[in-house]
Nucleic acid binder design. Sequence first.
DNA 1: CACTTTCTGGGTTGTTCTGTCCAGAAAACG
DNA 2: CGTTTTCTGGACAGAACAACCCAGAAAGTG
Lengths: 212, 212
Amino acid sequence: MPEATKPRRLTPKGQATKNRIIEAATALIAQRGVAGTGIEDVRAAAGVSGSQLYHYFASKQALIRAVITRQADSALDPGLPRITALDSFEALRAWADAAIERQRENGCRGGCDLGTLAGELSGTDEESRTDLANGFLRWKDLILNGLRAMRERDELRADADLDELAFALLSAHQGGTLLSQTVLDVQPLEASMNATLAYIRSFATDQRQPVR
Amino acid sequence: MPEATKPRRLTPKGQATKNRIIEAATALIAQRGVAGTGIEDVRAAAGVSGSQLYHYFASKQALIRAVITRQADSALDPGLPRITALDSFEALRAWADAAIERQRENGCRGGCDLGTLAGELSGTDEESRTDLANGFLRWKDLILNGLRAMRERDELRADADLDELAFALLSAHQGGTLLSQTVLDVQPLEASMNATLAYIRSFATDQRQPVR
DNA sequence: CACTTTCTGGGTTGTTCTGTCCAGAAAACG
DNA sequence: CGTTTTCTGGACAGAACAACCCAGAAAGTG
């Protein structure tokens, strides 16, 4: 193993090219899946040429992992409007609505969610699985922190199992998205988000709020 | 197109071989994913040889579709103990527990759920996506019928949105399984199933039952 | 303005995998 | 018991694709 291509700092131009490659790869993977996306396709789409991919990435796997990391970093995918805090019922609802709306907009055609990637890679490639798992756990913590804040503000009852709620919400999001992409209808995603949010709200101290 | 390999009825032996191939493919795909499973691997695992696969299946895609159909038919995968009716809180809980237990048993390593297949194929292959969608919708109907029976027996309140509950439960199952397989821990699956079942139970007419 | 590092372009190789062909064995059928 | 369909086996062609190499341009550094 040749020391994994020493990642000496890139010049600005190089950094830009590298980003362009990752973006192109992300877009293609969103449409055609990981297995359906060839290095050559990425190369053409990014407008770079030849061995550039291998200049910046040691292998296809490395590129995929970069895509995963990027997606995991764009916190809680539904939206470039970066979620900073999911610490109120309104924020949760807004996040859910954004996810639903986003799905509706691209006709339920698969985005490049961690979920989609997980389905394809978890069983195949151990390193990617680890990256994906870390991404998911970070998202879960994001939700969890929001819920904790709500409990500290006494908006949520003390007996609520916040870990369970956080995982349930994340699962609902992933599962709903997966089903929607398969059935080509937002209904499953709407249903799972509505149900899980309603369940979370059932732990509210103030029950006067409409469940919607 | 040569009329899609006229499916003149198979002899018993041929049928057995065909099944063996599908089983081998299912097992391999469960471990290594669709893209990671070559025709040659299936051939070897099934103990048949040469062009047999193409005698029984027109293409790799056709084989995959056969696997999908098979999985969709083994109703609500958690278990060979075929679910006949999910028409009581106990039955739902038992089904959920079976799913969780099953996941725990294979160390959360991906089975060959429709969900896993959907993640890999929905975006890539339109025909497979249709098969998968049909499978999911049949499962949803299975759940829905159970819930309807419960409502008719007045175990569920009339104002419960059964479609929403059915989709939510299915999404929770798929999402929870996906997360569990990625994180290699049953916690997400347990959380999402618990939460969704509790939510369904909140529509029970008889609230004396423990939520567990 | 020399000199070094970083970036670009295209061509190429070797492997892996799907899908095909042909000839021989086994079973079904009269 | 002979003939026809059905099944089996291995070998092979053709394409796709990941990965590597080399030479030249551009950018950065003294």
